[in-house]
């Protein structure tokens, strides 16, 4: 149980980082923490006590494997996270070119 709670704490740390930090690079890092907390949680779901890696080998019977499906799903969600992070970093670099600052409180041309 403790590992799930730690996972949620990690999620909340990432959320805090997104909401509270002013530097946009730190916000991107916070998003990464949120994503990885969810991924970690997904992998933990498939865990079983004394299980072994879900790889078929020649001299082993199929028994007591960990659930392989969450691992496949996590791989997909890592790819998605990669795409989002790359896009946001590219936008952040462009923002720095335009405004000359990474401070989110100074990037406020939109109002209303």
């Amino acid at each position: 149980m403790i590992e799930y709670i730690l996972c949620f704490i990690l999620f909340c740390i990432g959320l805090y980082c997104v909401l509270r930090k002013r530097n946009i690079i730190k916000i991107v890092i916070g998003l990464g923490i949120v994503e990885y907390a969810v991924n970690l949680f997904f992998v933990l779901i498939g865990f079983r006590m004394h299980g072994r890696a879900p790889i078929l080998a020649k001299d082993q019977t199929i028994s007591n494997m960990v659930d392989p499906l969450p691992q496949a799903l996590v791989l997909t969600s890592i790819v998605i996270g990669l795409a989002v992070t790359a896009l946001i970093v590219a936008i952040a670099i462009r923002l720095y070119e335009k405004y000359g600052t990474f401070d989110i409180t100074k990037i406020r041309r939109l109002r209303g």
Binding site: V79, L82, A86, V89, A90, I93, R94, E97
Partner: peptide, 17 residues
């Protein structure tokens, strides 16, 4: 797809800088 895409992302970010 992944190899070319990842390299393109890296190259684009380098060229920005």
């Amino acid at each position: 797809k992944v190899g070319a895409g990842l390299f393109a992302i890296f190259a684009v970010l380098i060229l920005f800088k």
